[in-house]
């Protein structure tokens, strides 16, 4: 693949996926800037080996996996590279504050155990099936169903929704 094509390919994937991945990790962290840092780091790692990653069947899945692995390993708290990324951030424009619903949902997610929170986020924001989450997490499908069920119940309780409205997996 010519170098220009590789560059263009990376730019296209970056443009198409950055925001969506950031939303997923924002729901997981509850911190949008931290989510952006982790996603940017994942793309940096992808770029470094893009000639190989771009040949995978699903390069986006690789980036997503790295981003989530970084999130789970708490890499973000210990790597000084973050300080460099922070210096690169564009100035944040003044925007409207988050809506009440968004705050409540993010707070409710934060109250869930990490595995349940991750399963819920991957399912609802990552559009991943139960089987895909199970493969990603290296657990049985039934385990993911249990996580999702508990996660939904926990969210319903936090959000004061009647638990019977929560759909079973």
């Amino acid at each position: 693949m010519p170098a220009d094509d590789v560059s263009a390919d990376f730019d296209a994937v970056y443009a198409a996926q950055f925001a969506d991945l950031t939303v997923q990790l924002y729901a997981y962290f509850g911190d949008r800037q931290e989510a952006q840092d982790v996603v940017q780091e994942a793309f940096c790692r992808a770029l470094r080996r893009w000639s190989k990653v771009s040949r995978y069947d699903d390069p986006v899945a690789w980036v997503r996996r790295v981003a989530w692995n970084l999130a789970v390993s708490r890499w973000r708290r210990s790597r000084t590279a973050l300080s460099f990324l922070r210096r690169q951030r564009p100035q944040e424009p003044v925007v409207d504050g988050p809506t009440t619903v968004r705050i409540e949902l993010v707070q409710a997610l934060a109250a869930l155990p990490p595995v349940q929170r991750r399963a819920v986020v991957l399912h609802y924001l990552g559009d991943m099936s139960v089987a895909e989450i199970a493969e990603r997490e290296g657990v049985a499908v039934g385990t993911v169903k249990s996580w999702l069920h508990r996660g939904r119940t926990g969210l319903a309780a936090q959000l004061h929704q009647p638990s019977e409205e929560v759909r079973r997996a």
Partner: peptide, 15 residues
């Protein structure tokens, strides 16, 4: 709603 509210606020540092 969360996705719709958050997406406009994401400011990618860029490729």
């Amino acid at each position: 709603d969360l996705r719709r509210d958050t997406l406009p606020q994401v400011r990618p540092p860029g490729a």
